[in-house]
Design a protein around this nucleic acid. Structure first.
Lengths: 227, 227
DNA sequence: CAATTAATGTCGCGC
DNA sequence: GCGCGACGTTAATTG
């Protein structure tokens, strides 16, 4: 890992063209050849970058100025013209042991699979990742009357999720094995449901269920935490 | 902007929980309080981070080790336990003049608006950003027989774009002014069309059009480039 | 490898 | 400020 602070100008040509005027920035060169150009603001996204695999070539342009040219196999090019270097350090970081996550959709699905009744009275799990021709339904359940219920789980429930569940229901309702006692119902479960999504869901007869992640986690054995 | 290279352990609690074991990493502290934790790999996304606005508090934990606690208004917390600092430098970068872009969907829309006939024989432009109750249609056109044609433009055509165009068509076909000579047709134009999207489009009677960006650009005056 | 889907997405525009 | 869609989305997972 090499960290360079420099006054530089950056030009990118690839899927689009982009240009950064001369200014002081931080250049992060990772050991896989990738390059990040950061300013003192914005969020974690660099102003400009090159994704690995790529190679950096240090040289001089026609005017004798230092220029780095970063190229990838897909013909993307990042050209960094350097006017002045304020810092240039290198460190051996070694391989990172990596990130452990807890609380994403997969985990939410596990919790709801263990406690389907929190979604609707009398609901029991039939199968997780129930397969259909266009992809798996997050949870397939059965309610107290023996009716099939398809559950789509999102962390943030927006209109796309409702469309997705609608497509599943359309398919599932063509299956005579699932509809013996009546139409397959849909439940749209999310930690947060956007108003538009709620309206669309109700319009399609889909039930919305707000999920309380912390409460669900509380139902589980506390020793099961990752850390 | 402060750059720190250190052996550290990181824990994040917020919308999810995440944990990074002790290892050597780069910590980037931006002047708005945001913090990025980078390893020597991955792509431009840090292993962990805090988005602005947030504040960093340097202190010591119960064992007397240096600990940074980054907090935001939304109760997100990033805890960085520092074992050893290998580098610690600060620089005044000033405000970045910012990025200029060229070549994204907007530009694609301009090009297709200038050359609608590349989408379908005899197509002429009626209006760009044709307004409907649920948002503007990218291009509203008319074909050789005087039929209305709605065009949705994407760089990458996936299923969402087809759903979007479907919703537009549903609305447009309720307008008697547009349907005097027959139903409004839909064209889904993109530089790349995913198989799923193509199937769904055909199922709904929507025509798919692959757009050749370079060829289109060739039809235009080359002096119009931004830089 | 391609395709599909989630994301602490982020970013920018319009209302 | 919220809602919505684009993004050089990126990144992970699965067939």
């Amino acid at each position: 890992m090499r960290l360079v602070v420099a006054r530089c100008q950056v030009d990118y040509a690839g899927r689009l063209s982009a240009h950064l005027p001369m200014a002081t920035r931080v250049l992060m060169l990772k050991s896989d050849g990738s390059v990040l150009v950061h300013s003192d603001g914005g969020s974690y996204k660099p102003l400009n970058w090159m994704s690995p695999p790529c190679t950096v070539k240090e040289g001089k342009n026609d005017d004798g100025q230092v220029e780095w040219v970063v190229t990838s196999k897909t013909d993307d090019t990042l050209r960094i013209l350097i006017e002045e270097i304020l810092q240039d350090t290198s460190h051996d970081l070694g391989v990172d042991p990596g990130l452990q996550k807890d609380g994403v959709e997969k985990h939410l699905q596990e919790l709801l699979a263990d406690h389907p009744a929190t979604l609707a009275e009398g609901l029991t799990l039939v199968r997780r990742e129930f397969p259909t021709a266009i992809g798996p339904v997050d949870l397939m359940c059965r309610d107290g009357e023996g009716l099939s219920v398809a559950v789509e789980i999102k962390r943030r429930g927006d209109i796309d999720g409702v469309e997705q569940l609608t497509r599943y229901l359309e398919l599932l309702n063509r299956d005579p094995l699932l509809t013996t006692k009546g139409e397959v119902r849909g439940i749209f479960a999310a930690q947060e449901i956007k108003p538009q999504a709620r309206v669309l869901a109700e319009d399609r007869g889909i039930t919305c269920a707000l999920v309380d992640y912390d409460a669900l986690r509380g139902l589980d054995d506390p020793t099961e935490r990752l850390f």
